[in-house]
């Protein structure tokens, strides 16, 4: 493999890690409550704008990244309490209502910051020499941070009582209620954590992508693909889905333009759902 290929490959890995971080909320909430949050991409966007605000206030990106999960998490909490919880038995309604929310967020940001691009300075410019290949320091750091968060989440989801309850609800919501699990509390916290992580993913990505009020939509569609391909409600599925989406994108882009590559990934998802509705890595739904 030549240097460019390796760099592309590492890019794909780092992109998929960000994708996992962002899509995790969407997937877990879908598994937990059976609803899709159409405003999830806007949570990502709000995270990015937290970093923009931090920079405008003269603070550096690290503080922005630190504040983004807190701010977006609170937004998520408010969203869950005011809208989502009323509707988790009616997924269609949630779909439409959260689309309304996503419009509101997008327009508010447009009114506050204007429709144009924002630019965040890369706080960690330059590259690091790894096994003879120069790789941007910031991307390496992203991989490190998201890796740590994912390990933390994995432990949280599989080793703590909270995680156990979460998984119980994903398996069987009614039974969990009957067993005395406070389903409402779990929903609320999970939604907030999912929102916080999407926000953080948004902030972390700011030096690498274009920031504008519409940035949530492509992110949302990527997250959908992750969920469709990976299946619902399991971390492994999510990781598998994200790796698949980003690797396909990057490797197909050797042969085609990015748009064409994207079309192939979309088509793959559509065909897959006919063959394996539970996703590539999901368990079969009875």
């Amino acid at each position: 493999m030549d240097e460019i290929t390796i760099i592309q490959f590492v890019n794909a890995i780092s992109y998929s890690m960000i994708l996992i971080l962002g899509a995790i909320g969407l997937s877990i909430i879908f598994g937990l409550m059976g609803v899709i949050n159409m405003a999830h991409g806007e949570l990502f966007m709000l995270g990015a704008y937290t970093a923009v605000i931090a920079q405008k206030l003269g603070m550096n990106l690290w503080i922005g990244i630190l504040f983004s999960p807190i701010f977006v998490g609170i937004v998520g909490l408010a969203l869950e309490v005011s809208i989502i919880r009323r509707f988790y038995t009616r997924p269609f309604v949630t779909l439409v209502a959260t689309w309304g929310i996503s419009i509101i967020f997008r327009q508010l940001i447009k009114m506050l910051f204007g429709p144009g691009h924002q630019i965040i300075r890369n706080p960690l410019a330059g590259s690091l020499d790894l096994f003879g290949i120069a790789y941007p320091k910031y991307r390496l750091l992203i991989m490190l941070i998201t890796g740590i968060i994912l390990i933390f989440l994995f432990v949280f989801f599989h080793k703590t009582p909270f995680g156990l309850k979460c998984r119980a609800i994903i398996q069987n919501r009614d039974m969990s209620t009957a067993l005395g699990i406070n389903v409402g509390d779990i929903d609320r916290w999970t939604f907030s954590i999912g929102a916080a992580l999407a926000g953080m993913a948004g902030a972390i990505m700011t030096p690498l992508i274009t920031i504008n009020p519409e940035m949530g939509l492509p992110f949302l569609s990527q997250s959908f693909l992750v969920v469709i391909l990976g299946g619902v409600g399991s971390l492994f599925g999510l990781i598998g889905g994200a790796v698949l989406v980003s690797c396909c994108r990057f490797f197909l882009s050797f042969f085609f333009r990015l748009t064409t590559a994207q079309i192939f990934v979309f088509l793959m998802a559509i065909i897959l759902i006919r063959i394996r509705p539970q996703g590539l890595f999901g368990k079969k739904i009875a």
């Binding site: 079309i263 979309f266 559509i270 759902i273 006919r274 509705p277």
Partner: peptide, 27 residues
């Protein structure tokens, strides 16, 4: 054939139709 006969229902139906629309836009 893919969605209705594939018994894709509920929220998945909404997402896949969205993906189809996005794909055509890209195409």
């Amino acid at each position: 054939f893919f969605l209705i006969y594939g018994k894709v229902s509920g929220v998945y139906f909404a997402i896949i139709t969205l993906v189809v629309s996005l794909t055509l836009e890209l195409l």
